[in-house]
Design a protein around this nucleic acid. Structure first.
Length: 207
DNA sequence: GCGACGATTTCG
DNA sequence: GAAATCGTCGCT
């Protein structure tokens, strides 16, 4: 069985469109950086300024989220909890500030390198299981901020070798967001062992 | 300028 | 269940 090859141009077109189809279409795509390639298995869609309280761009443009307001296909990388990096793919037209958070992937190349960056891991399925783990496995940090992902740069996004059929995509509420629990904008490849475990958001305990 | 808190992970 | 750890952003 063979699948149509949408190519990089097709992927660019998909990313320039509405965020939900873009998020679904990113499943199965490959992201390469730092000598490691992952096949994306879990993502979350964020609607920028368009009434999505969970989006980092919801309250408007700031120095941190500026790249979200630019053209699609660039990387929005942010630092959180004082120690973790997470990566998004900017989608939609300029000014919309929508993006797709890459939450998990299966390491398909550079497994040894990924293991060396993720010493706490037991199983290979955990190497990029979670948004911060994915970045750690790929060695993605601040230097990837704003990078165009469909060119020949150090961080590259490429179409799926085998696109994920619609029927194999599961959906549910986004992880870790305080509100909008009724919005099922987390998408994952059903049955994948690399998909992160769902955890209800719990506020930090104060002292 | 200050302080609360976060699209998380890991360990106990 | 709670600590680790710090950049960001809104404002008591």
């Amino acid at each position: 069985m063979s699948y149509p090859d949408v190519g990089v141009a097709g992927l660019a077109e998909l990313l320039a469109g509405p965020v939900v189809p873009a998020a679904r279409g990113l499943l199965g795509c490959r992201l390469s950086a730092g000598g490691v390639t992952v096949r994306i298995t879990e993502v979350e869609a964020y609607a920028g300024t368009a009434g999505d309280p969970a989006s980092h761009a919801h309250r408007g443009r700031t120095p941190r989220n500026a790249v979200m307001f630019g053209p699609a296909g660039h990387a929005y990388v942010y630092f959180t909890y004082g120690m973790h990096w997470c990566v998004n793919v900017v989608t939609g037209p300029e000014g919309e500030a929508s993006a797709v958070l890459l939450r998990a992937g299966e390491v398909v190349e550079g497994v040894e390198v990924a293991r060396s960056r993720r010493t706490a891991v037991r199983r290979d399925a955990d190497l990029a299981r979670g948004p911060a783990r994915l970045c750690a496995a790929l060695g993605i940090d601040r230097t990837a901020y704003g990078r165009y992902l469909l060119g020949d740069g150090p961080v590259r996004l490429r179409p799926a070798a085998e696109p994920v059929p619609d029927a194999a995509i599961a959906a549910g509420p986004r992880v870790g967001v305080t509100g909008a629990h009724d919005v099922p904008w987390r998408f994952w490849v059903d049955g994948e062992p690399t998909v992160s475990q769902y955890r209800r958001h719990v506020p930090r305990t104060r002292r």
